[in-house]
Design a protein around this nucleic acid. Sequence first.
DNA 1: AAGGACAATTAGAAGCAGTG
DNA 2: CACTGCTTCTAATTGTCCTT
Length: 462
Amino acid sequence: MIGENEVLEGTLEHDGTEIDCVKNVTPELALKNDLVIYKDNALVWGRFDLSKVELKIVNALIALINPLEPFKKQNQWNFTKADLENLGVSSIGNLHRHIDEITTNLQSQIIRLPMKDKDGKQIDDGKSFEKVNLFYKSKWDDKEKIASFSFHPELEPYLINLKGHFTKYHLHHVQGMESQYGIRLYELLRSIYSLEKVKKGNFSISLPLSYDKLREVLELGDKYPRFSNFHTRVLQPAVDDLNTTDIDVKYSFPDRLTPKSTAKVKTIVFTITTKFGYHPTKIVKGSLVPIEGENEVRLSVKRQLNLFFKSSVSDRLIATYGVTRCLSNMKLLSAEDSATKIKNAAGWLNKAIEEDYANSDTGADLVDLLKVSTETDVHKKRFLEEQLMPIWPSLESEEQRDFLQHRFDQGAVAVRFAQYYAASLSGNIPAPAIQVKTVNAKADRDAVNAELTNLLNTDWAF
DNA sequence: AAGGACAATTAGAAGCAGTG
DNA sequence: CACTGCTTCTAATTGTCCTT
């Protein structure tokens, strides 16, 4: 199934900004974590049985690996409690109670991988196998509260200097997931999704997956003996989780032709669609782990625009208004369309890009754009989250434009930030602003302006 | 911060009536 | 009769509160 020697991934970056159209991601997560996981597909399809917390720890560790450095230069990853919190691993409050058990379990984990012949080619006949320990060493320093893990050296080819057959995704998509099977299923679908998609040049694919194979990969064993058990306890929760990520997933059972049919399910068909902003980019055969270039991003956005326009129109829009503007307005279309069902999507989008709905105060989605700002300064991040985002819709469009153009360098927002910063330094961190509900109501706008004036008149202790 | 006690939630299994 | 979905039950896991 995964035979092509192609490397694909699916996140867009441009101008140092990442556009993230993931639903239900807290601003905190989107801001904090931009960790990326690279895994050989053999590892994705390997058979192992880890609990949700364990899986999250492993993924967090993998995300910390520099995919270009050999293991001998980096094979001990340390975790503090704070790190685990940042990485979204649950049960933090009880970590000290479970760390002994967790380390034992993780270190004794064996992953069953397809056997490799002497040329390093995988033989996936379902019977031959290689079994590799996940870790060869783990430590817990109870005094410093630091856990450290070292991956088994045999895993190096599956994690470092990957060439083809690998899957890349952002850690924050899986770290918030509720179900352990959601994480695995996300990886499985993701590993196939990009390949198929780019090969065919379309944006929605159907992937038939054998029920037995899926059970096998998830190491379900004798659990969930009935299909209905599997359906309600594994599949549905997992798919619910998947739909909070960069892909939309639906599934169907082709063995059941009518809704009431109870025929035995042999195959599950997953239909996967990317959300705007996550369309995959094709990377040259055999290349090293890719870093997205401007050109790939432009091509990817063009492919998305081509869903609505002729190629020449897409080119003109990108040339005239730029990649960012096109993409953010496509995002807006996607959001507005699901809410209101726009009749002529292409016409709407054309106008939206020309008039830049997304960056005007008629656009509803700007707050989401702000959420994924890549500000590294902790004060700026916090200011964005707590002070600016809640009142953003009520700002004058001139103020909004100023901020989008000059960020913290000039304009009314920059002034507010300077005051916020001074207050923070002296320890008087202002309380989070109250969310403005109605976007354009004059009363709200006046209220915020009054608040702003108030703020300007405040004496700030240094 | 650690750990005990307990509450809440979740995972897994199974009773029941129905179906082809 | 072998198996189903729907539903309910129980055990296990996870989360919270409280004391030290």
